[in-house]
Simulated assay, not measured.
Amino acid sequence: MLNEQSKTFLFFHYLFDLLLVALSWLMATYIRFMILESDSSSFIKFMKLIPIPVIVAAYFLFREHYHTRQILHAWHREFSRLLMLNIKIQIFFILAGYNLQANRLSRLTMVLFFFICQIFLILNRVVFRNHIMMKMIKGELSNNLFIIGQGTHIDRFIEKVLSNPHMGMHICCWADSEGRAEEQGLPSCT
Rank of each mutant, 00 (worst) to 15 (best):
N124G: 10
M84R: 15
G97S: 15
N99V: 10
N103M: 15
F114I: 06
L85V: 09
F93W: 11
G97F: 13
V111R: 05
K48N: 12
L72M: 14
A102Y: 07
S42P: 03
V111A: 09
D17S: 01
F33L: 08
I116V: 13
R129L: 10
I55R: 00
K135L: 15
C117Q: 07
H76R: 05
F113M: 10
T109I: 09
V21S: 07
H76N: 10
R125S: 11
Y66R: 00
A57Y: 03
R77N: 10
L82C: 06
R32I: 12
N103W: 10
M133E: 04
L26G: 03
H65K: 13
L19T: 10
H131P: 05
F43L: 14
M27D: 01
F93K: 06
I119Q: 12
R129D: 04
Q118V: 01
T29Y: 01
R63G: 03
F60P: 04
R77Q: 11
C117F: 03
S41D: 07
M84K: 15
D17R: 05
R129N: 07
N124L: 10
K88L: 13
A102V: 14
A96E: 09
V127A: 12
A28M: 10
L82K: 00
H131K: 13
T29I: 14
H65A: 08
F60M: 02
I89T: 02
H73M: 09
M34Q: 02
Q118Y: 00
T68C: 06
T109S: 07
V56F: 04
S38D: 08
M47C: 10
L85Y: 03
T29M: 13
L36D: 11
H73I: 02
I55K: 04
I116L: 12
F115C: 13
L72C: 12
S38T: 02
L26T: 01
R32T: 12
K88N: 12
M133V: 02
L121R: 04
Y66S: 07
A96C: 06
F114G: 09
F79C: 11
M133F: 12
M84Y: 15
F46Q: 05
T68W: 07
K45Q: 15
N124K: 11
V21E: 00
T109F: 07
F120L: 04
Q70T: 00
L95I: 14
F93N: 12
I44A: 06
V111W: 01
L121P: 01
L112C: 02
R107F: 06
I94G: 08
V56L: 12
W25H: 01
N99Q: 14
E64D: 11
R69W: 08
F62V: 08
N86Q: 11
F92H: 05
Q70I: 03
T109V: 02
F114P: 07
Y66T: 09
I91S: 14
V127Y: 13
L82W: 02
S41G: 11
M47V: 01
I122Y: 04
L61K: 06
T68I: 07
I44N: 03
I87S: 15
S38P: 09
F79W: 11
V126P: 05
F79H: 08
I119D: 00
L49Y: 03
F62I: 07
F115A: 11
P53Q: 04
I89Q: 14
M84T: 11
K45D: 02
L85I: 09
L49F: 04
S42R: 14
V56I: 15
V126W: 00
V21T: 00
I52P: 02
E78A: 10
V126S: 06
F33T: 03
R69M: 08
I35P: 06
S80T: 12
R104M: 12
F120T: 01
